[in-house]
Design a protein around this nucleic acid. Structure first.
Lengths: 252, 252
DNA sequence: TTTTCTTATATTGTACACAACAGCATCTAG
DNA sequence: CTAGATGCTGTTGTGTACAATATAAGAAAA
């Protein structure tokens, strides 16, 4: 089997894509056999576009152009459409013939439902196949805590969002229940962008401070191996986050 | 990639749907806005293939041919590939270049994890946005109970599977939490076929009898409007079903 | 006989041309 | 001047030819 040399591999390292996405490479779980470049490229573009959506590079209502994306990645519309199809199945996009591919928005009702469910799933992380945190995991949480401290010193919405995402993925290390991970991830990406959008109408400094405390608390629980406690802390903060969002009427 | 102010509320008055489209019965669950024939056809084929997979018409390991499916539905490979892409994102298929599109199997470990999660989600149906059962819903459960009685009289694996599916969808009426519905449905379709495959190695008559009792119990709870009780009954039966499956080593 | 390389063949992946469709601007009839 | 019709333009959906790939069969050499 010859390694990837056909056609457009040279354009792959063409650096036309955001280099910043290198970090957000696949939140574990997918240790697929990367025997071919096609699947790898698919995953790469999928992660990039998903990140752009939830980081509000593509705010809700944005019209994506298949052709523009194809040009950006140096491929044709066909593989782009496959990625968009997956994102549509995840509820992040909606394609309408003659109109375009539009980034979805989440109405207030559905938002509340997702948050309710996310609370319950967060609790389940401590109940279904909890994993005793490894040294590496503990170190990761320490690193996240440090980033939280730095964020408090210099609040910034985008760094806030990125830390939130990375913190979420770190939490997913605490359970080995793969379906729970997948579903939690799906729901997280459905609401993260709405949450981020609302942040601009709220007290950023206070939100950052609360989040930094959450990280510190959970780091403490993780350090002593009490995954269940970490899960309950997480649940409570998801709950409080939603209450703050509702009371400030930051949602529409 | 400019933001779109007008959002997407304009296609509602379009309604120039081609009425010639076959009105095939979609097995509930997906109440998409059928503004165009393309989306309707997509949903139709998607439901058909998903049903074939979970009814074991396509047992795990089966290799599907895009071309054959295209010929069967009278279309080209392109729209077929879109449907297969969605099924792949749901974890029911896996496409490998040069090999084919293969119906996935579920290993014993992942099966157990999904069952654990399904138990918890079943309980949540009674907690997150439970819906007071309407007269129509109660009638539906009565009908299901009758079908259960009939099944006990004449056990049949295929009818068993179909009743199981319909019963599941009826249970989903008991909550208005749409994300919970979607996720429960996804997990159900991931494991239903494995469960059905194992039935052949178990005591069909006994399984049918237990299932009929479950329906009767839950019908009783639903009839008096106690959705929470119905959810707990369901949870307990999912649990017992998994125990029976494990003890008889019907899994592999 | 066994092993290894080659070749045939079937399948999914990709590119591209065109069809279907929606929205908008323009034009024309009254 | 207004209102409706009509073509223009850009978008996604579909069909089709071809490329890339994996598997299996077969041939050739040890």
């Amino acid at each position: 089997m010859q390694p990837l040399e056909g056609q457009l591999t040279m354009q792959d390292q063409g650096t036309k894509v955001d280099e910043a996405m290198a970090r957000s490479a696949k939140p574990a779980g997918t240790d697929e056999t990367q025997v071919n470049a096609a699947r790898e490229r698919f995953q790469r573009i999928y992660s990039i576009l998903r990140s752009r959506i939830c980081m509000l590079d593509y705010p809700p209502g944005t019209r994506l152009s298949e052709e523009a994306l194809a040009a950006e990645f140096g491929i044709s519309r066909t593989p782009v459409r496959r990625v968009l199809g997956w994102l549509e199945s995840q509820g992040l996009l909606r394609s309408v013939q003659g109109v375009g591919t539009i980034v979805t928005d989440v109405e207030i009702g559905a938002f509340a439902q997702v948050y309710q469910l996310r609370m319950e799933l967060a609790e389940l992380v401590g109940k279904l196949s909890p994993v005793p945190p490894s040294e590496e995991t503990i170190r990761l949480f320490h690193e996240l805590e440090a980033r939280g401290v730095e964020l408090v010193a210099r609040p910034d919405p985008r760094n806030f969002a990125q830390l939130n995402i990375d913190f979420f993925h770190a939490l997913m290390r605490l359970t080995e229940n793969e379906p729970l991970r997948e579903i939690s991830e799906r729901l997280y990406y459905q609401t993260a962008r709405i949450w981020l959008k609302s942040i601009s109408h709220m007290d950023l400094a206070e939100e950052v401070a609360v989040f930094a405390r959450e990280i510190a608390e959970i780091r403490t629980a993780v350090e002593i191996g009490d995954v269940s406690a970490a899960a309950y802390i997480r649940r409570s903060h998801i709950s409080m986050s939603f209450v703050r969002l509702s009371t400030t009427s930051a949602l529409r």
